[in-house]
Simulated scan of single mutants.
Amino acid sequence: MRLSTQERTCLFIDGANLYAATRSLGFDIDYRKLLDFFSTQTNLLRAYYYSALLETEEYSPLKPLTDWLAYNGYSLVTKPAKEFTDALGRRRVKGNMDIELAIDMLELAPNLDHAILFSGDSDFRRLVEAMQRKGVRVSVVSSIRTSPPMIADELRRQTDQFIELADIAEHFSRRHQDTRSRVEREDEE
């Protein structure tokens, strides 16, 4: 992993994608430790966390996390999630934050040397390419150790540096569990 304290760096965290990756790998993130880790490894200007929130519920399980992040050094970017019923009558929630993340990253490009994206979504490949054209180095944090891999192959090929989430989890996980994917653990049993 190539990180430098000389590079002006921002973190861009796709909350839903990171949550899915950490669940699949079997650990929870300590967001204070995550911020501390990247603050010591880079010249961290800001850490953005993106999440859609369902406003129709009286209590959202995301609310304590988003409140904590907002008061503890993260720039929180949220929008209301949309609730709908699909063709089979199932309740669905849609809350994509890709556009918000892409706009923020592109707007910050003139002030950055390095953008670190926490997502494996293939939709971000063009964003990574655009940032690179602006002279910004882009690292992507996700996982290929999950089954299926959490990072799209086209995004992994475009990035300047792919960082395997499981390899750095020890620096900011709440529980130091076995960070191999559930499938890998079951295969050994």
Rank of each mutant, 00 (worst) to 15 (best):
Ile29His: 07
Thr22Pro: 04
Thr22Phe: 04
Gly15Asn: 03
Thr40Cys: 14
Phe27Trp: 07
Asn43Gln: 15
Lys33Phe: 10
Arg32Asn: 04
Thr42Asn: 15
Asp36Thr: 08
Ser39Arg: 13
Leu45Asn: 08
Leu45Val: 01
Thr40His: 14
Asp36Glu: 12
Gln41Ala: 08
Asn17Cys: 13
Ser39Tyr: 04
Phe27Met: 01
Ala16Arg: 05
Asp30Ile: 01
Tyr31Ser: 00
Gln41Lys: 15
Tyr19Arg: 05
Asp28Pro: 01
Leu18His: 06
Leu44Lys: 02
Ile29Ala: 07
Gly26Val: 03
Asn43Gly: 11
Leu18Arg: 00
Leu25Val: 00
Leu18Pro: 05
Gly26Asp: 03
Leu44Asn: 04
Lys33Arg: 15
Arg32Trp: 00
Gly26Trp: 01
Leu35Ser: 12
Lys33Asp: 11
Gly15Lys: 01
Tyr19Thr: 04
Leu18Thr: 07
Ala16Thr: 11
Ala20His: 07
Ser39Phe: 06
Gly26Cys: 00
Gln41Met: 07
Phe37Asp: 04
Asp30Val: 01
Arg23Trp: 14
Thr42Leu: 11
Leu44Met: 10
Leu25Phe: 06
Tyr19Cys: 09
Ser24Val: 02
Asp28Glu: 15
Ser24Leu: 06
Ala21Trp: 04
Asn17Pro: 05
Leu25Ile: 03
Gln41Val: 11
Leu44Asp: 09
Asn43Met: 12
Thr42Val: 14
Asn17Gln: 12
Thr42Cys: 15
Leu25Glu: 02
Gly26Pro: 00
Lys33Gly: 10
Ser24Thr: 06
Gly26Gln: 03
Arg23Ser: 13
Ile29Phe: 12
Gly15Val: 01
Gly26Lys: 01
Arg23Met: 13
Thr40Asn: 15
Phe27Thr: 03
